[in-house]
Design a protein around this nucleic acid. Structure first.
Lengths: 218, 218
DNA sequence: ACCTGAACACCGTTCAAGT
DNA sequence: ACCTGAACACCGTTCAAGT
């Protein structure tokens, strides 16, 4: 837990420690004190390297997406655009509460910039107008972040209470099915589909629609 | 601030008080103690009406979208789908930090159910398969929540530090433009578009693409 | 049934002081 | 330049006790 003699504490060490604490305790359990002990130091020491907790969270956000990779340039722009979306989601799903950390935070690490650069290059090369390429990139990240945010949060109070994802969604389905059919016929009829726990196909559906919509611009 | 003689504290009162505190102090400043004094009571009293803070936030989420309204049934499914997206965004933008509260929370107030019911009815009526209608609805809320989450969060540390939105985005533009043009030609070229602070057109762009992609399914 | 006082184990952050 | 101890003003939550 406590880093022994790794002299000269750096911002990288702090980010790594924060990542470890996040994995172990979740975002709600991430405190300056815990990060400090993780790195083998007293809490106030962190303030020499970091202005406040908000800045530490910026560091953490950068660390989360530091592993971002540029997909190989196989296939057309569409296939690569989809791949960007899938990889971004996978990156967020890989770390606990990652979407909550990253959402609404501006991350500008070198890896992110490289990925963004490649993405824009591909879109412009495919014939998108400059403004459209920029907005297409923004659209993708808004969708992925919004989706994973839902995906990563406990569905309800039945959360850490141990119930499995499948159980929770089955219970949610029951709720919809139990609604009065005269007032909510569609919710009753679609209960199954609305609460289907298969997140992969759900994500892919949205991704394909977005790509189709973009393709229509060309 | 303190509610004088409004006997019999209810969950509705608590939700309203939480909404007031949220507006005044933001989500980070929302504490059980502040909500308690807002409602004219000691903090521990809240625990009679609410299991914990998480449940209070559920209440708050419901209160935020309690004003949701079903748009008039003018225009085709597409126009109404767009209208749902726009209204949802407007609803979130109307309350401070609303996206952060709502994101990843399952809200099942009667108004929300009514809106969802209408939405599904419209999509099925337009010819969408059951599963597609359900996923189209989910797609919309993921996009809107992701978008507004970005929109409502301070763009950087230059946040509450007083800088206007325009100033911050101009500064961000400078950052992109200052990158080495050999390695990041597209970021340099699109700096303007990437940091354009006009969120309305940005939102509308994504919304139109999604609607187009859905239309292609019919 | 509903509310309070006192208490517990935590927080983020500041600051004088150490080396 | 970097770290610590002590302290401040807060937290969420529990629980015995009041009415």
């Amino acid at each position: 837990m406590a880093q022994p003699p790794s002299r000269t504490l750096t911002r990288e060490h702090i980010a790594a420690a924060a990542l470890a604490v996040l994995e172990r305790e979740g975002l709600a359990g991430l405190s300056m004190r815990k990060v400090a002990t993780e790195v083998g130091v007293q809490a106030p020491s962190l303030y020499w390297h970091v202005r406040n907790k908000e800045e530490l969270l910026d560091l953490l956000g950068d660390a989360i997406i530091a592993d971002a990779e540029i997909p190989l340039r196989t296939g057309d722009w569409r296939e690569q655009y989809l791949e960007y979306g899938r990889r971004y989601r996978a990156l967020l799903l890989a770390k606990r509460d990652a979407a909550k950390v990253v959402a609404g935070r501006l991350t500008t690490g070198p890896r992110v910039l490289a990925v963004l650069e490649d993405q824009l290059d591909r879109l412009r090369g495919a014939g998108f107008a400059d403004a459209d390429a920029a907005m297409a990139s923004y659209l993708l990240s808004a969708y992925v972040q919004g989706f994973v945010l839902q995906e990563q949060s406990p569905l309800s109070a039945a959360e850490a209470a141990g119930a499995s994802r499948g159980q929770v969604s089955r219970a949610a389905g029951e709720t919809f099915r139990a609604l009065p059919a005269e007032t909510h016929p569609n919710l009753v009829a679609l209960a199954e589909h609305l609460t289907d726990p298969d997140m992969d196909t759900r994500f892919e559906f949205g991704l394909q629609r977005i790509a189709d919509g973009l393709a229509a611009l060309l």
